[in-house]
Design a protein around this nucleic acid. Structure first.
Length: 587
RNA sequence: GGUCCUAUGGUGUAGGGGUCUAACACGCCUGCCUGUCACGCAGGAGAUCGUCGGUUCAAAUCCGUCUAGGACCGCCA
């Protein structure tokens, strides 16, 4: 039997036709001498009807069918009887009278329902991922992801980009995330590393003159997982020669607009908003702000400068910040206990406390209200607060204030339903610091990566005050997630050498780690820059999921293992011997 | 590396020292049923309550260990 169409695509145009379908039994409803089977495939569900009026033998077989049995069935598409339509089903106006059916395979009862909205542990879903992936929402998510990559390929091909693969077995380099290492059999004690990104190779491709490169590439980083981080993930990686940062951003915007249109039929307005990193931190307390709602951070230093509240005064005298967010009508929504719980949470950012005021008709209420008697009006005005609002203060270093209020801003917005979930708010964050200080290494490290070009006027700062330098780098942010990022790269040997020096590399170490790359810059290397977009996060956001596991067919769990195959696992001693490896613990 | 949370039939939950010989829903099995689509009706099977140890006359229940999972901080050029 040759399949005529997919179950979910059977509609009135097939009325009267004899069709053949193949799929999985979703549900059997046995009324004795009349049996209904919902048959499912990747496109949807259609109702099959079995009766001895249509075929005696088929009815007999249907009697033994169970959930998830695989069958093929042939029959006639007919309209459903009077009043028997099911408006909840896409195929609810028709059904198929079955004349012939074959059982292709039986199935054990699955450990969970093959349907949307199930309430089972991720562990179980991953262990039986092949069943989980049968669920319509999983199929739709992966189909949508496929639409995204198709759209990206089309757009970039039209824009003259060339798709080039780069190695997965490559060289371990310092800086950045922990590498996944692959031992070499041929060279005892030597290791390949899986790429954290194709960064150096795509730059070398610019040196090779390909001018516009792209690749949908797998990347590997051996760091702890989060909802939006997997040890292996996919980047839409691209690099161009001769373009400015703004031109690369324009190109990226065209790509985003095209994907949104192709995949969701949503028109996004260009150009996208651009704000500097400093502005993002000041206004939103985040380098990846969610701008679907307001409740921005307000600098309260001037308004509270005369308030006799020691905490604020001490912080201000020590060069810290006092900032606040105002929760509209938040006074009744948050009890003292709930605010205390928030304060407890903030400790993980290093915050020592959370000062708050509830705005009343004639002033403030709350434990510190007494300090604000004389300054109530100016504080209210500065905070933009009205009666019934809740003002939350953070007083600390810039970083702690940003982390604390940034967290409060988004968590409260979520709790209070202030976010329009249907919205897609893209935003560029530009002009990043070139370096950040690492407490772990007691030196400056690259904020983006060591190949990022400083702003022209900041190049001389590399020798004198590297920490003051800003970079020609940019992140694309969507709904509070870092969707992607990129930069103009260094293409001159002298600048690259300064950069390594500022990062604390000795000449010898730079030569040993990156000599091949620095040498390449000597051979007519074009100015270039690019960007990479996190495909998993993009797909997650477009499907309105809250974890990238939902858009990856076979992801790792939060402990970086894979419950289906049980990777990682131990290997035979012979394999270790061949690789010249010895393990030191764990049996 | 750290903090917090969770673990009871296949699944989701209830039970928080004795009444537990562990309850409920869905699922599963058997039978009946010709218009169901959350089909219905009747009956049935299925759990040594994650592990090991402790407290107690008595532990699913209290305490600790370990294991597994989840969230977060650190980490993620």
């Amino acid at each position: 039997m040759e399949r005529t169409t997919y179950c979910g695509l059977v509609d009135e145009t097939y009325l009267g036709q004899e069709i053949c379908l193949k799929g999985w039994v979703q549900k059997r409803r046995d009324l004795g001498n009349l049996i209904f089977i919902d048959l499912r495939d990747r496109e949807g569900i259609v109702q099959l009807v079995f009766s001895h009026e249509f075929n005696e033998e088929a009815l007999k077989i249907a009697d033994d069918l169970r959930s998830e049995y695989v069958i093929e069935a042939r029959g006639k598409v007919v309209p459903r009887g009077e009043g028997a339509n099911n408006p909840n089903m896409k195929t609810g106006k028709i059904e198929v009278e079955i004349h012939e059916v074959h059982l292709l395979n039986k199935a054990k009862t699955p450990p969970f329902y093959i349907e949307d909205g199930i309430n089972v542990s991720d562990d179980l879903r991953l262990k039986y991922r092949y069943l989980d992936l049968r669920r319509p929402e999983m199929q739709q998510s992966l189909i949508l992801r496929s639409k995204i990559t198709t759209s990206i390929h089309k757009y970039l091909e039209e824009e003259q980009f060339i798709d080039i693969e780069t190695p997965y077995l490559t060289k371990s380099t310092p800086e950045g995330a922990r590498d996944y290492l692959v031992p070499s059999r041929v060279y005892p004690g030597h290791f390949y590393a899986l790429p954290q990104s194709p960064q150096l190779f795509k730059q070398l491709l610019m040196g090779a003159g390909f001018d516009r490169y792209y690749q949908i590439a797998r990347c590997f980083r051996d760091e702890d997982l989060r909802g939006d981080r997997q040890p292996e993930f996919t980047q839409v990686d691209l690099e161009t020669s001769f373009l400015t940062a703004a031109e690369i951003q324009d190109l990226t915007e065209g790509l985003l607009k095209r994907v949104m249109k192709d995949v969701l039929d949503i028109d996004i307005e260009l150009p996208l908003q651009r704000i500097t990193w400093n502005e993002a931190m000041d206004r939103f307390g985040s380098d990846k702000p969610d701008i679907r709602f307001g409740m921005e951070l307000i600098d309260m230093a001037a308004a509270v400068k005369d308030v006799d509240f020691k905490v604020f005064q001490n912080v201000l005298q020590n060069g810290g910040q006092v900032k606040a967010i105002t929760v509209p009508q938040g006074a009744d929504k948050y009890s003292r206990k709930e605010i205390d719980a928030k304060q407890e949470y903030l400790k993980r950012f290093g915050a020592k406390g959370l000062a708050w005021l509830k705005v009343t008709a004639d002033g403030f209420s709350g434990p510190i209200a007494k300090f604000f008697k004389d300054s109530a009006d100016q504080v209210k005005q500065a905070a933009g607060a009205h009666t019934g609002d809740l003002i939350l203060f953070a007083a600390d270093t810039r970083k702690v204030v940003a982390d604390s209020l940034g967290y409060l801003r988004t968590s409260i917005a979520k709790e209070q339903g202030m976010i329009d979930e249907a919205k897609f708010a893209f935003l560029w964050v530009v002009d990043w610091p070139l370096f950040e200080y690492s407490e772990e290494f007691h030196r400056y490290i690259a904020a983006h990566h060591p190949f990022t070009m400083p702003n022209e006027e900041d190049v001389q700062l590399l020798d004198t005050d590297p920490h003051k330098a800003h970079a020609q780098s940019y992140d694309i942010v969507l709904n509070g997630y870092e969707l992607g990022g990129g930069s103009i790269r260094i293409h001159q040997r002298s600048v690259q050498e300064k950069m390594f020096k500022a990062l604390g590399f000795t000449k010898e170490k730079a030569e040993q780690q990156f000599g091949f790359f620095i040498d390449a810059l000597d051979y007519g290397f074009p100015p270039h820059g690019g960007l990479a977009i996190g495909l998993d996060r993009f797909a997650m956001l477009l499907t309105h999921k809250d974890n990238i596991r939902e858009v990856i067919a076979f992801p790792k769990n939060s402990k970086a293992s894979e419950p289906l195959t049980n990777a990682p696992s131990t290997v035979a001693q012979k394999q270790l011997d061949e690789l010249h490896l010895e393990t030191t613990e764990e049996e």
